[in-house]
Design a protein around this nucleic acid. Structure first.
Lengths: 153, 153
DNA sequence: ATTTTATTATTGATATATCAATAATAGTTC
DNA sequence: GAACTATTATTGATATATCAATAATAAAAT
């Protein structure tokens, strides 16, 4: 009788076994898939732009700083994306009377309409992403992700 | 006695409750944290560049096409990142005798040395990301992610 | 064997990402 | 209240991302 001892705690030989690699891979696949859907339905915006619109819809009015913190994006990047959404007249930036350093960002009428109109299709996309998941599995996944976020903060 | 009926299957009011949003957020936090660490240790490359080096190390020699497929990145993006790694003399592209359409990508001597030298620090980063996770939790997380990938493919 | 189709790598255009620097403004401190 | 410090939004520089178009080459079809 022989016993073969294998140390399974060693470095994975395959980068595929790494949590962070799979997170990035999943993110890429999902984003690409989402982008395809937006194009197919002729929304004329990117996934990142949609996410920003949705955050604004849920939390307006808010400053660009808040938008950056909430979405974990760089303020510089927010500025540029808002410029694009502004050009498409989906959002507006209004000056705040006693706080001239920042703006109140809001959806325009057209922006509200746009989000409402396209929400069902986006909802369907989301549902497809977790097809076959139980409610418990979805919650578990989010919890595990949040724990990683905490570990890296 | 009253019974309050709440439909919890409705649209989440908060984008934070969405799996895809948390995946993206986790990815951003992890990438930023990793980038900070690379800078702190003076590696002089980005996280994406490191990931590419690591894939090459594990699977060399391989073509740019394979690199793109494996990392889920666009071939155009691979070309540009390899150009940077080439300039730093960490990788090389050798012509293949009977297949003049593609190259064999490999680490250079310096590239091998570079990866070996910095692996411990990167390994520590990875471990930090899943600190407090059981082995089962890590595997569960990866499985859930892979299922999302399949749903979106 | 020649034509047609497909694949690989590259480049240009544009969106996004980060960092660093700047301008305007707000808050703090003395 | 004047000087110093911190915050917000912006811009420039560079890395990365995608798509579309191209050139070179390989594979398939006739």
């Amino acid at each position: 009788m022989f016993t073969l001892i294998v140390d399974v705690s060693m470095n994975p030989k395959d980068i595929n076994d790494l949590v962070l690699f799979q997170i990035e891979k999943t993110n890429k696949i999902a984003k690409l898939h989402g982008q395809r859907a937006l194009e197919k339905h002729g929304l004329g915006i990117t996934v990142d732009q949609w996410v920003l619109l949705k955050i604004i819809q849920e939390r307006q009015p808010l400053s660009q700083r808040e938008l950056a913190d909430f979405s974990k994006r760089d303020p510089a990047s927010i500025t540029r994306t808002l410029n694009l959404l502004d050009k498409k007249e989906l959002i507006g930036r209004e000056p705040i009377p006693d706080l001239r350093r920042q703006y109140e960002v809001r959806l325009s009428k057209a922006g509200e309409q746009f989000v409402k109109e396209n929400m069902p299709m986006v909802k369907q996309l989301r549902e497809q992403s977790v097809k076959g998941f139980t409610k418990a599995e979805q919650e578990m996944l989010i919890q595990l992700l949040v724990r990683i976020q905490e570990n890296m903060s």
